[in-house]
Amino acid sequence: MSWLLESLNSSIGKKILMAVTGISLILFLVGHLSGNMALFANDGGKSFNAYAEFLHHLPGLMVIEIILASVFLLHILNALRLWVENKKARPVKYAVNASSKNSTIFSRTMVQTGSIILIFLIVHLKNFWYEYVILKSNDNLFEIVVETFKDPVYSGLYILAMILLGFHLNHGFQSAFQTFGWNHKKYTPFINFLGAIYSIAMAVGFASMPIYFLFFYGGN
């Protein structure tokens, strides 16, 4: 197995790990957002709570949760490791930074947008998963959601984090394809386009929840 570990520890191996975990998270977000659309059913949270119950009693939920947590952890730890190593590869900085002339802001800020997503993730897990699954402070998840999004500061920061998630995804989507070696004159422009659409859809989709509960949801 030493060849496998050595391959994954090479510069390209670390990239592949980033891309495999990144694409998995991209797929996870699609599922997560689709399910959450039940929030908009306008039935006082019946559909949403039923969906939450369904997930909660899914057989093998534990296994799915462990896999998801590991994918997140691998993505994050590997990202931080790459960031530290890549900083070390240029110990002396340039006096003039002209990176805006040769690359996009999305590509240069992956660690920054990623770190904000991480902070968001911690707060997000505390508010929903920890309260509902661990503390069991309220068995009506819909109520927790309504209460949480009532806070304009929380909702504002939530929306901001989703915009930055869009930044992360806009670079990440096409980057993962390039990492897998899928770069082709015919298909790459389409992948870039799809990535942009996907990131906008995710940012707008997730941000629509706080916006809805802050401005358009009038109680029952």
Partner: peptide, 25 residues
């Protein structure tokens, strides 16, 4: 050397226009 993060700055600055499709290969 560091690891590639697909910013494509290299392709933009390369005097010979070497394409990043080579990196994919």
């Amino acid at each position: 050397f560091g690891s590639c993060t697909n910013t494509y700055a290299c392709e933009a600055e390369c005097p010979k226009g070497i394409s990043i499709s080579n990196i994919a290969r």
